[in-house]
Design a protein around this nucleic acid. Structure first.
Length: 937
DNA sequence: CTCTCCCT
């Protein structure tokens, strides 16, 4: 041992001064050096170590002066938070909007020394929020955005190596786990808005739970509205909760249920109100209230479940011609320009009719009244029906309270609920988290890729049902991402790298094989963004007309490719402003087109890294659509007589009216989206050729065989094959060689039909030899007038069965086997009498049953037939007509010795009873009589 | 004859 050993131990202790992200590597290298000392390498190591420590020092030195706004409610809790953070690894912070938690927490973290050995990561559920929080924190710290305070969202990274606080979407942090499994870049992680319980948040909370013991230096802060806090605390081993009050004004709640009014006897006085009527009545009530209080008109936010309801309500309110009132719709699909109108100033009263966007994503400013219809469209995936549903449901108490909180931010507000208080109290406390309402394939894929162990064992805050998990695996199996044992396949590993829905990712991988990656990149990127085609409510027809130029009559996917190419042409020909004009004229949203290009570029780069080959020539319809089909195998449909479609597992669906192929109704189609609303609708659809399905779905199809039968000409057993995919008949009745499918049954049929019954075209010697033998024996039976000499078919079957190898079930292989083996054994398969005789037929001798009859010089042919009631039954003597008169009738009575006894017995039995009774028992009598006679005399 | 919202 050299004296380096103790110094290395000292160096190991100093690792705490390095950046977290470097420590793991530095430690490993050092341990290596302890085993194999190397001066030069050690010097290099020390340099790297120094660089890392200097980085920490530089980060510490870069800390800006931290100032707080002491008027924010969180200011009062600052010390409590600091102490809790020093003592605990995880802290839950509860507080409503306006508490200042989002902007102040990162600063508190900086102040207690976090952010020096690694980043303070701060996640938001939405991109806009990540950007705007980053810019506010940067502003409060007096630093430019993108330096000490940065952000990263999809397509945009405004952070660098000096960044201390990084805002990002929770999706970005999750994506980073792929390359940084222990999240070593971070020394602190703040998960904001955890109460929203999106799929990403639940996955992240589970992931962090597994990470904490391996990263004892990591601090985690979970922030949430005051919703279900205990659950978060329990999840993180009773982590402390610090509650911060909000800074809002009181909000009154008025309950105005739609139910009918009743008199004292319970009779109906008035009918139930519609939601629209109730909104109008409420607006009247608000106006009256304002008059009585002497207040100016305040803005109203109305929550409705969907676009349709918004459109109807808007029309109704316009017709009511309320004075000084502006009606604004607000939903996510509206173009950004139209959404912006809620931020423009206005005279009089504004009534904003909104979907759930206004509950969390968009904050409508200056709202004094909220009218809550109490309903929303909530996406629910049914693993039983394997269908996404979008029913209108009563919202939870938490959601209703969130809606209520949308007023009272600048002055006291009033929330009018169009349902009763009992109704409210009877509702579920919380909205089901997304993880319980969605297909889990994407999450499982990521978990498998990260090797997180059994999905059922993963510490989800609310674990999904086992059946939902296996349903997720089913989809992955459909996409060939996992094998039968639920293990990730090489293809699945590629799929996990693609930041798109697994179905879309699968299309990309297939496209590279089929030579349509160019086109499928366009399709897959389009489907991960919002549709860039705008369809403003007032100008729907004009919009449809403008979009018609890109339509493909058979395929909405091809329509997307057309649109992309149309836009690319213009983009290259026009400068910025004319291009925007062109977009406006054609009802296209420029920003979303840009997102499309961003998404396209991101996917293209990843595909290039994965060495997927890009086709040079444009792909034809089949190449593009076969690739798409591989991602959508369980979402195909066959047209029914009623004009709708029959899909997987007997489910019926309709083409959504927004599809461009609605009129043509192809026989077979596939769809990218199957959602049940008023009906089960298919939204992005394309015609497919049924012949494509089977080759692409080899791992999923089921084959059924029926009516196996021997075909002499083919020399094979043939059965009809039916091919089904999820119960849909893809191929109905196709004749196939049955041998490989069921060799046992096929061999049986081959022996029975070909060998025993002789239905075979073959020159094998044994066949002719056996045929001859059997013909001889057949004649024997005819003479004996009994069918008990020749063994039955089963004996013949048994003969061949015992001698024929198991794998022979068709003429061709039989012939070659026989040719080769009969050379060694000439008697192979040749029957001997004892093989086929049921008994010895010794009574049938040539003497008793001659083949010719001699009468004088004549020799006439005799033949025998045994088939009662047949004209030829018995013995037949062939006589040329001219010789007929020469035959003595007495001789013909005798005929042949073999049959005389039976003939005589029959004769005696036909005598009248009086006579007959003298000769009993008849056979004995006849036998005795014949013995005393000479034949033919 | 028309579907809430968000994210890699």
């Amino acid at each position: 041992m050299t004296d380096e050993s103790p110094s290395i131990d000292k160096l190991l202790k100093n690792l705490d001064h390095a950046m977290l992200a470097d420590r793991h590597r530095l430690r490993r290298q050092l341990l290596e050096l302890r085993k194999k000392p190397d001066e030069a390498k050690l010097a290099q190591w020390v340099a790297r170590m120094q660089a890392s420590c200097e980085q920490v020092l530089a980060r510490r030195a870069s800390l800006p002066v931290i100032r707080y706004d002491d008027s924010l409610p969180i200011a009062a809790k600052r010390d409590e938070i600091k102490k809790a953070l020093e003592k605990h690894q995880v802290l839950i912070i509860a507080g409503e909007t306006g508490s200042g938690k989002t902007t102040q927490l990162p600063k508190i973290c900086l102040e207690i020394g976090r952010g020096q050995h690694g980043l303070i990561g701060h996640t938001q559920p939405r991109r806009i929020a990540a950007r705007s929080v980053a810019s506010r924190v940067a502003e409060e710290l007096g630093t430019p955005l993108g330096a000490l305070v940065g952000y990263q969202v999809r397509f945009e990274d405004q952070s660098d190596s000096n960044t201390l606080i990084k805002l990002m979407t929770d999706g970005i942090l999750l994506a980073e786990t792929q390359n940084d499994r222990y999240l070593e870049r971070y020394d602190t992680i703040i998960v904001d808005e955890a109460h929203e319980r999106s799929l990403n948040i639940d996955f992240l909370l589970g992931y962090l739970k597994t990470l904490l013991p391996r990263r004892p230096d990591l601090k985690v802060i979970i922030t949430s509205a005051t919703i279900d806090l205990e659950r978060f605390s329990k999840h993180f081993d009773d982590a402390p909760i610090v509650e911060v009050s909000g800074r809002t004004f009181p909000v009154d709640t008025w309950y105005r249920p739609l139910t009918l009014e009743q008199d004292e006897e319970g009779n109906r006085v008035e009918d139930d109100l519609t939601v629209d009527q109730a909104i109008l009545a409420t607006l009247d009530e608000i106006a009256a209230y304002e008059r009585s209080e002497g207040r100016s008109p305040g803005d109203v936010l109305v929550f409705l479940p969907g676009e349709r309801e918004i459109r109807d309500a808007a029309e109704m309110l316009r017709k009511a011609q309320l004075k000084h009132t502006e009606i604004l719709p607000l939903y996510a699909r509206l173009s950004p320009a139209e959404q912006q109108r809620i931020f423009q100033s206005h005279p009089g009263r504004r009534v904003v009719l909104a979907t759930n966007v206004a509950e969390t994503s968009l904050t409508v400013p200056g709202i004094r009244y909220v009218i809550d219809s109490g309903t929303a469209r909530i996406s629910r995936y049914s693993y039983r029906a394997k269908v996404q549903r979008l029913p209108i449901e009563a919202v939870s108490q938490a959601s209703a309270n969130q809606r209520k909180g949308r007023c009272g931010r600048v002055e006291p507000g009033i929330c009018i609920r169009l349902y009763s208080e009992e109704d409210f109290l009877g509702r579920p406390e919380f909205t089901d988290p997304e993880i319980l309402r969605t297909n889990l394939a994407a999450v499982i894929l990521q978990m498998l890729h990260l090797r997180l162990g059994e999905v059922t064992e993963f510490p989800f805050i609310e674990p999904p049902d086992g059946k939902a998990i296996s349903d997720g695996y089913n989809l992955l199996q459909e996409l060939s991402a996992v094998d039968r044992n639920s293990q990730l396949t090489p293809l699945g590993r590629q799929l996990a790298r693609l930041p798109v829905d697994p179905r879309m990712g699968r299309m990309l991988l297939e496209a590279a094989k089929l030579g349509s990656l160019q086109e499928v990149l366009i399709v897959a990127s389009a489907m991960s963004i919002q549709d860039p085609r705008e369809r403003p409510p007032e100008r729907q027809q004009a919009a449809d007309q403008a979009h018609a130029q890109w339509k493909d009559p058979d395929s909405d996917f091809a329509g997307l490719v057309n649109l992309w190419r149309g836009f690319e042409e213009q983009r290259q020909a026009l400068t910025a402003n004319p291009l925007r004009n062109w977009c406006r004229k054609n009802f296209l949203n420029y920003l979303r087109l840009r997102e499309w290009r961003d998404s396209h570029r991101q996917l293209s780069l990843i595909c290039r890294d994965m060495q997927l080959s890009l086709n040079k020539e444009p792909a034809d319809y089949p190449k593009l659509h076969k690739a798409v089909l591989v991602g959508l195998l369980s979402q195909i449909g066959q047209k029914t007589e009623e004009g709708d479609y029959l899909g997987a597992r007997q489910r019926r669906f309709w083409i959504h009216p927004s599809s461009g192929i609605g009129k043509k109704r192809p026989q077979w189609l596939m769809t990218a989206e199957l959602v049940e609303t008023t009906k089960l609708y298919a939204r992005m659809v394309a015609k497919i050729d049924a012949d494509w399905i089977e080759p692409l779905a080899g791992h999923l199809i089921k084959k059924n065989h029926f009516e196996p039968h021997w075909e002499k000409k083919r020399g094979q057993v043939v059965a009809f094959e039916q091919i089904t995919l999820f119960g849909l008949i893809v191929v109905g009745r196709r004749p196939v060689h049955y041998g490989p499918v069921d060799p046992v049954v096929s061999r049986e049929l081959f022996i029975r039909e070909a060998l025993v019954r002789g239905e075979i075209q073959s020159k094998a010697k044994c066949l002719t030899a056996n045929k001859q033998l059997l013909e001889q024996l057949d004649e024997l039976e005819a003479k004996a007038r009994r069918r008990d000499i020749l063994a039955d078919e089963e004996t013949l079957y048994a003969f061949y069965d015992a001698r024929l190898p198991a794998e022979i079930h068709q003429t061709a292989t039989f012939d070659s086997w026989y040719r080769i083996n009969s050379q060694k054994d000439p008697q192979l398969l040749i029957m001997r009498e004892e093989d086929v005789l049921a008994r010895e037929a010794s009574e049938v001798t040539a003497q008793h049953y001659p083949d010719t009859l001699h009468i004088g010089d004549l020799e006439l042919a005799l033949s025998y037939h045994f088939e009662p009631n047949h004209p030829r039954d018995g013995v037949t003597l062939r006589v040329p007509a001219p010789l007929l008169p020469m035959l003595p009738p007495e001789r013909l009575e005798w005929l042949v010795p073999g049959v005389i006894e039976a003939k005589c017995i029959a004769l005696v039995r036909n005598l009248p009873k009086a006579l007959r009774k003298n000769f009993v028992p008849v056979p004995d009598f006849v036998k005795a009589a014949l013995q005393r006679m000479t034949f033919a005399e």
